[in-house]
Amino acid sequence: MNTDWFKEAQYGLFVHYMSELQNLTPFNPKEFDRGLHQDQVTDWNTCVNAFNVNLFAEQASQAGAAYVMFTLGQCSGYFCAPNSIYDAYTGHAAGEKCSERDLILDLHEALEAKGIKLMLYLIAHSPYGDQEASVALGSPELAANGYHYLPTPVFRDRWSEVIKEWSDRYGSKIVGWWFDGYYSDLYYNDVYCMTLSKAAKSGNSDSIVAFNPGLVIVKATIADDYTAGEQAVMELFPEDRWVDGIQWHCLTFLGDFWAYTNNKLPDEEVVQYVKNCTDKQGVVTLDVGVYRDGSISPEQMGFLKNLKEAIRG
């Protein structure tokens, strides 16, 4: 199974690295202010250049992370790696929304030196914070919830081209993808998810893919290799490794919410949750607060070192 390594990994870290968090780009900034910007608001390239991959990799190693899920970008339309196809469709200049630095390549090199694998987070819908880009990519109408532009066949095919450029560039450096926002059967279907999955696996056919349908741990699509498993609480446990034939996996946060820097629960509760899941061959990904310079929250690092001792021995 291509998820065997994932099961053996037991746990890893999730990083929300986004312009609206580490740079407070004016995309609903009050909602996203966690202090991760370190009192700096600059152009996007300056922000991406400030991320110290060696510092982050060292701390991820101290945390015992076997892998890291890292955001290429989310809804604002800013991405931390170049993409010529995205620029061509949207009309953005190179380096305007897709950073000049390929942070993903630099991050992989630093993580690989520590024996840590790299997975990528991306949205399954359009970057609706950039309305012009969403329309240019083929999503001209807002969904009923007012957020996600409708994933039309045109958008599906163009977005897949964008994904494929990244996948082909990274090849086996990327071992998995986590697609967010796959929320409604009204808008999505098997053709849609398989088209995106094919693009994501273009550079590495062994990479694993999950599509997030919301706060459940289920097989959401025929394309899923593991459960996206988004959870706001640490209460669901695996009965065994499998959910409808795919790897059981949970993604949750250590802080009060995504990308917060505190520990909302006592260390022993979280350690026990992770241990209960991994004892049944489940996998747990823990979201942590990561600052602009690439450092992990000191409070959370204290817990993660305890977790490493408990799980890794």
Rank of each mutant, 00 (worst) to 15 (best):
residue 168 D to M: 15
residue 118 L to Y: 00
residue 176 G to D: 00
residue 270 V to W: 02
residue 244 D to Y: 07
residue 299 E to N: 07
residue 153 P to S: 00
residue 59 Q to D: 04
residue 267 D to Q: 01
residue 69 M to W: 14
residue 275 K to L: 15
residue 287 D to P: 11
residue 169 R to Q: 09
residue 259 A to I: 01
residue 2 N to G: 00
residue 182 Y to R: 05
residue 48 V to T: 02
residue 223 A to G: 15
residue 55 L to R: 12
residue 305 K to S: 03
residue 50 A to Q: 11
residue 126 S to Y: 00
residue 312 R to E: 12
residue 139 S to L: 01
residue 105 L to Y: 06
residue 237 F to A: 02
residue 239 E to N: 14
residue 67 Y to E: 02
residue 299 E to D: 12
residue 71 T to Y: 03
residue 22 Q to W: 01
residue 185 D to A: 13
residue 229 G to Y: 05
residue 223 A to I: 10
residue 218 V to A: 14
residue 150 L to A: 03
residue 310 A to P: 09
residue 294 G to P: 08
residue 27 F to G: 03
residue 257 F to A: 15
residue 173 K to R: 13
residue 275 K to P: 06
residue 7 K to E: 11
residue 218 V to S: 13
residue 262 N to V: 08
residue 179 F to C: 06
residue 274 V to C: 07
residue 9 A to G: 01
residue 66 A to Y: 10
residue 216 V to D: 08
residue 47 C to L: 10
residue 170 Y to E: 01
residue 276 N to I: 06
residue 122 L to W: 03
residue 252 T to A: 10
residue 48 V to I: 15
residue 134 S to L: 10
residue 193 C to L: 05
residue 207 S to H: 04
residue 26 P to K: 05
residue 70 F to K: 03
residue 248 W to G: 05
residue 71 T to I: 06
residue 282 G to D: 08
residue 278 T to W: 07
residue 38 Q to E: 14
residue 214 G to Y: 10
residue 224 D to Q: 09
residue 190 D to I: 07
residue 194 M to K: 14
residue 188 Y to W: 15
residue 135 V to K: 14
residue 239 E to W: 04
residue 25 T to H: 08
residue 145 N to C: 06
residue 10 Q to L: 07
residue 230 E to A: 09
residue 226 Y to T: 11
residue 258 W to D: 02
residue 139 S to E: 04
residue 127 P to F: 04
residue 30 K to A: 12
residue 131 Q to M: 11
residue 63 A to L: 06
residue 74 Q to V: 08
residue 93 A to F: 07
residue 123 I to D: 12
residue 213 P to C: 11
residue 3 T to K: 00
residue 189 N to D: 15
residue 31 E to C: 01
residue 245 G to E: 08
residue 30 K to D: 13
residue 116 I to Y: 02
residue 305 K to Q: 13
residue 295 S to D: 11
residue 233 V to M: 10
residue 29 P to A: 03
residue 153 P to N: 04
residue 79 F to K: 01
residue 57 A to K: 04
residue 125 H to T: 13
residue 201 K to Q: 13
residue 303 F to D: 03
residue 69 M to Y: 15
residue 2 N to P: 14
residue 152 T to F: 01
residue 232 A to M: 13
residue 134 S to E: 05
residue 313 G to E: 15
residue 18 M to G: 02
